[in-house]
Amino acid sequence: MHIRKLKEEDAEQFLELNKQLDDTGYMLYDPGERQTSVENQRKGIARMIDNPSNHFLVAVENESLIGFIAAFRGNLNRNKHSAYLVLGVDKNYRGRGIASMLFEEIFFWSRNHGITRLELTVIKHNQPAFNLYSKMGFILEGEKIHSLMIEGEPVNEYYMYKLM
Rank of each mutant, 00 (worst) to 15 (best):
V58Y: 09
L120P: 09
H55V: 12
M48A: 15
K80I: 00
I45G: 10
N126Y: 04
F103D: 04
D90Y: 01
N92Y: 04
E63R: 13
V58A: 10
I49F: 09
G97A: 05
N77V: 07
N62S: 13
F108Y: 14
I98F: 00
H125C: 09
R117N: 14
N126L: 03
I106V: 15
K124D: 15
S82L: 00
N51I: 08
E63C: 06
A99I: 01
H55C: 15
R96F: 04
A83S: 08
K43A: 15
F107C: 07
F138S: 03
L102R: 04
N112S: 14
A129M: 05
I139N: 11
K124E: 15
Y84V: 04
N112I: 05
L57H: 11
S53C: 13
K43D: 13
L87D: 02
H113G: 09
S134D: 09
I123E: 12
F130T: 15
S53D: 14
R94I: 05
V60P: 09
W109Q: 10
L102Y: 04
G95M: 01
E63W: 07
K124I: 12
R73M: 10
H55Y: 14
I115F: 07
L57R: 11
M101T: 05
Y93T: 03
F68D: 05
V60G: 10
K135L: 05
K91G: 00
L120Y: 09
I123Y: 09
V60M: 11
A59H: 06
A71M: 13
N77G: 11
I139R: 14
A71W: 06
F138Q: 04
R94P: 03
R96I: 03
N126W: 04
G95R: 00
F68A: 05
E61P: 02
L76E: 08
H81I: 02
L102F: 03
R94V: 06
F108L: 15
T121D: 13
N79G: 09
R111P: 05
L65Q: 08
L76G: 00
I66P: 02
F107I: 12
L102N: 01
G74M: 07
I115E: 04
